[in-house]
Design a binder for these strands. Sequence first.
DNA 1: CCAAAAGTGTTCGCGGTACACCCATGC
DNA 2: GCATGGGTGTACCGCGAACACTTTTGG
Lengths: 228, 228
Amino acid sequence: MFEYEYPRAALAVDCVVFGLDETDLKVLLIQRKLAPFQHAWALPGGFVRLDEELDAAARRELEEEAGVSDVYLEQLYTVGTLGRDPRERVVTVAYYALAKLSDHRIRAATDAMGVGWFSLDDLPKLAFDHREIVEHAVLRLRGKVRYAPIGFELLPPRFSLTQLQKLYEMVLGTGLDKRNFRKKMLAMDLLVETDEVEQGVRHRAARLYRFDRRKYDRLTKQGFEFAM
Amino acid sequence: MFEYEYPRAALAVDCVVFGLDETDLKVLLIQRKLAPFQHAWALPGGFVRLDEELDAAARRELEEEAGVSDVYLEQLYTVGTLGRDPRERVVTVAYYALAKLSDHRIRAATDAMGVGWFSLDDLPKLAFDHREIVEHAVLRLRGKVRYAPIGFELLPPRFSLTQLQKLYEMVLGTGLDKRNFRKKMLAMDLLVETDEVEQGVRHRAARLYRFDRRKYDRLTKQGFEFAM
DNA sequence: CCAAAAGTGTTCGCGGTACACCCATGC
DNA sequence: GCATGGGTGTACCGCGAACACTTTTGG
């Protein structure tokens, strides 16, 4: 047992993991095994250990609860509303993560009972205030994807411009003009044309590109700002 | 005494309070009375009570330690780096606040030994990792002031366009063209011309304006986005 | 040859930027 | 009358937006 002079809140982390399906932007949820909210869907997360960094705790919980690793992870905000956990005061540091659903390890790891990918407009009832956290994460993603090259974290290492555009359309919730999108994206000079093309499609195969992080870092140091 | 099955981190809040002097953007610091970092300057802040919301804790500490109330307050991010407090694990939710230094109550309240306003480029050595938190807050303020009408939180209720422009120049750290600034700001149609003018200046007195929050809220609902 | 999506240029209008002088006021 | 900052307009350029057809490929 551990004793303190004043009462202390429990500290947790929760993760909103986004993944890009062929057709949809999805969120990773797990089914709770224990009360409260037993059997309800919830964000992966759990308590922070005393000797563990916050983002390490987030990654550990993702691995333990959903088998997910190697994601882009960023802190979202911290919620500590009184009564948000019926048991006791729990303050949770929320994170959002971007996973490459094209990564077969992730597909395999999350292919289990009690772990699932849900479309944003088809979420089940969520435990605690996790619904609000997801909403918040969506807004953040929407804001950030326009000013930072994080969209690429949702795509395979090699992708077509159409895939990239679809991603922006899903995240922003709007249609975009193909010619203008390509012009603007290519003009930033951050994509490298590979000599590969799409495979297994029954129409003209699209050229694949990769994101050049090196170049991005270099340009950024010179004051360049990503914008879409 | 309070007992728990697992060890728990202490939870704190810290506030970076910005204020706009005649000449400078300043940060409010307090001088620590107790170890660790006794006598060092630090951000106002303290431990969160178990029955208290996070932002309420931030406001309470501001009031208790610096006599400051009625500020614009927004969560910044949460730091929990191991070893950041030499005593034990402390996780702190950082906030930033914007205070109207024109408000005489604030000037009076912070006019005490152990409370001081410091220019950003003349900060003393700070306790803990508070220096990093301040840097982070400056970046956030710089990013946000361009896309949200929060600059007004630093000015008196009635202000001249020159004051407003100086504010932007200080926060952004760049010079701005007077005619273009006025054109753009007035074009957003969020400022209301009052019939007052600057007092006690020995040159032509500037017209004073006020920010019309109602109008801003209305326009925002219609999809308008503030940008400078 | 047909279906499906890839790929490609031009025009137009608005908004951002650069730029300099006269005016009002207090002392 | 002079010093100090207040206040104002125009020209240009670049970027974002609108918009449609030809090409490639697999079946």
